[in-house]
Design a protein around this nucleic acid. Structure first.
Length: 558
RNA sequence: UGUCCCAUAGUGUAACGGUAGCACGACAGUUUUUGGUACUGUUUGUCAAGGUUCAAAUCCUUGUGGGACAACCA
């Protein structure tokens, strides 16, 4: 019986379907409007997936628009990284990139329209005077003494502001709305300020720049954006957004707010992320520990896994904190399907198979990815001396430890079962070598007549053919679940000093010169991605995420 | 002591006046040459109090809790 697909729409989809049904629009236009003042992070990914996803779903397009109205904090470096990240996530914006700065002339004209309507005025008050006359949320503000200037005077003054006749900060253009409004944003908000700063696109053409509130909605309208989706903190701006559109009599874009993404153990503010970069806590915006798109990319996340994550967390208006484990689940889920397996020993210890002939080498077949039906296999050499993971051996193992110990047997993945006979300690009492005998009648792929039972299969690497690899293990950057939500403490107080571990291990031969296939599951160890620092002489891998570890979990319970 | 927004298992999100679902997590089990994967099962929820209604997570009122807003930032 055909199951009817369950229709489960988020509130924005409901609004859009409503608009479409009413015939308000035939197709929709959304936009993703970052300010180029930092790198994109996973929170932006939520917005990107939402905006581009909506246009894909309902027909229409999405504009990539740079909200570049404050030149002092913006830079082309950020513009470039943003374009790269959106593309990498798998989205294509309409025709070209849009810039709010492309509309400076138009927005200037809009200001003149409002001045002529008597709805805007030039204010000579100082920044402090404006602040004190604004009142507080519970106390109404006072009118500026300059509020009743004539249209002619305002027109003249505003033009001279544009022409650079006045000092920075000496005058602003304000909308004339309501100084006693309970909504602070309606208390004669500032539309333009004088700021002599070099703009990364318009150069020194302008010395006045529009404020967000007098640029964003206008840009939306110019681009015929049907649904302008932003985060919750702009909710109180919406009446102003609508006021400008109404008074200007321009295309009525509709602003809709949703709750931004919060992830535990993570900070998402660009300002704070910038601090981590500037203070050298991390090695740049693309450090694999960063929640930036570029960081996640370097860490080994796939675009598909990030998109799936964004779909899974949903869209709503309530504040939320998503567990990072959901992000990790998403990447494991994808990598499990696509990543070829390799054997890599991260903390090596040598095992000598005493009854295996010296000089003998067997080439064993091993499948690249058991989760993939079309997966091919590769050859790995087996001989007398191999490395195994030191955590797979215990001198005095507990009952629930399934791995190797004196007198115990395990299977070497895709090879033979071996039994541990003895081990050697170094001068400090650490296990230096393990001595085993192998059972020739237990070879993988052949009938096993050894009669030996094992409880686990472990990975290994042939000593002779081992490839040295540097392995970078990452832990969360913060020890606290909500590092930036403590009133009395700074988020820097919660830094995890131990978020990076570098190991030198050995990998199987097939890791060599393999840069294009750069994502692997290192058997039993996790998913790894080759780092840009890697070279044929020195392979470097980042651990994207561990495998789920039932043994570790068991230990944690004790 | 203002205006606006929000409140559903541990977390996230559905149900749009008519059986409270789903995903992740947790727990138990099956399979397994990865203590992985896959599969099966279990667990836990409508902030509170009133009201409307045959029927309320859903509508109304009040309360409680959380959030946003007082940059010449976005």
């Amino acid at each position: 019986m055909a199951k009817r697909e369950k229709k489960s729409l988020n509130f924005i989809e409901q609004i859009i379907e409503g608009d479409l049904k009413k015939g308000k629009y035939k197709e929709i236009t959304t936009r993703f409007p970052p300010e180029p003042n930092g790198y994109l992070h996973i929170g932006h990914a939520k917005s990107i997936v939402l905006n581009f996803g909506l246009a894909l779903k309902y027909g229409g397009k999405t504009n990539l628009r740079f909200d570049d109205t404050n030149p002092v904090v913006e830079d082309v470096e950020y513009v470039d990284s943003i374009k790269e990240d959106v593309k990498w996530l798998g989205f294509q914006w309409a025709d070209k990139e849009y810039y709010a700065s492309d509309y400076f002339d138009k927005i200037y004209e809009f200001a003149i329209v409002l001045i002529k309507k008597g709805l805007a005025f030039v204010d000579d008050s100082t920044i402090d005077e404006i602040k004190s006359m604004r009142g507080t949320p519970t106390k109404p503000g006072q009118h500026s003494p300059f509020r009743d200037r004539s249209v002619e005077e305002n027109l003249d003054l505003f033009e001279r502001m544009k022409n650079g006749e006045f000092e920075d900060g000496s005058k602003v253009l304000r909308a004339k709305i309501d100084m006693s409004s309970p909504n602070m944003h309606l208390r004669d908000p500032i539309m333009y300020r004088i700021k002599r700063a070099h703009h990364h696109r318009t150069g020194d053409k302008w010395c006045i720049y529009p404020m967000y509130d007098f640029a964003h909605g206008q840009s939306d309208s110019i681009e015929n954006i049907t649904h302008s989706i932003c985060t919750l903190e702009f909710e109180t701006h919406r009446p102003l957004y609508d006021w400008f559109i109404e008074k200007l009599e321009i295309f009525p874009s509709r602003q809709i707010e949703f709750a931004r993404l919060n992830l535990n153990y993570t900070i998402m503010s660009k300002r704070k992320l910038l601090k981590l970069v500037q203070e050298g806590i991390v090695n740049g915006w693309d450090d694999p520990r960063m929640p930036t798109i570029s960081g996640l990319r370097r860490r080994g996340y796939t675009p598909e896994s990030i998109r799936n994550f964004c779909d899974r967390i949903g869209i709503a208006k309530r504040e939320n904190v998503v567990d990072v484990s959901l992000l990790e689940y998403s990447v494991r889920e994808h990598l499990n399907k696509i990543a070829e397996r390799r054997m890599v020993v991260m903390r090596p210890i040598k095992m000598v198979i005493t009854n295996y002939p010296e000089g003998k080498i067997e080439q064993l077949d091993i499948i690249n990815n058991p989760e993939d039906e079309n997966s091919l296999s590769r050859k790995i050499p087996f001989s007398r001396e191999i490395y195994i993971e030191s955590t797979d051996f215990m001198i005095d193992p507990p009952k629930d430890f399934f791995r190797l110990g004196p007198g115990r047997s395990i299977r070497l993945k895709n090879a033979y079962k071996v039994t541990c006979d003895d081990y050697k300690l170094d001068s400090e009492g650490n296990v230096e070598e393990i001595y085993c005998t192998y059972h020739s009648n237990s070879k993988s792929g052949q009938p096993d007549t050894s009669g030996i039972k094992v409880r686990s299969t472990i990975h290994w690497v042939n000593v002779e053919a081992a490839v040295p690899v540097e392995i970078r293990l990452y832990d969360r950057l913060f020890k606290d679940e909500f590092p930036d939500s403590h009133k009395d403490k700074d988020f820097m107080d919660f830094l995890n000093e131990d978020s990076l571990h570098i190991l030198n291990g050995y990998g199987e031969v097939n890791l060599k010169n393999d840069k294009k296939e750069d994502k692997y599951q290192f058997l039993r160890m996790g998913y790894f991605s080759m780092d840009d620092d890697s070279s044929p002489e020195k392979l470097v891998f980042n651990r994207t995420v561990t495998l789920k570890d039932g043994w570790k979990k068991l230990q944690g319970k004790k």
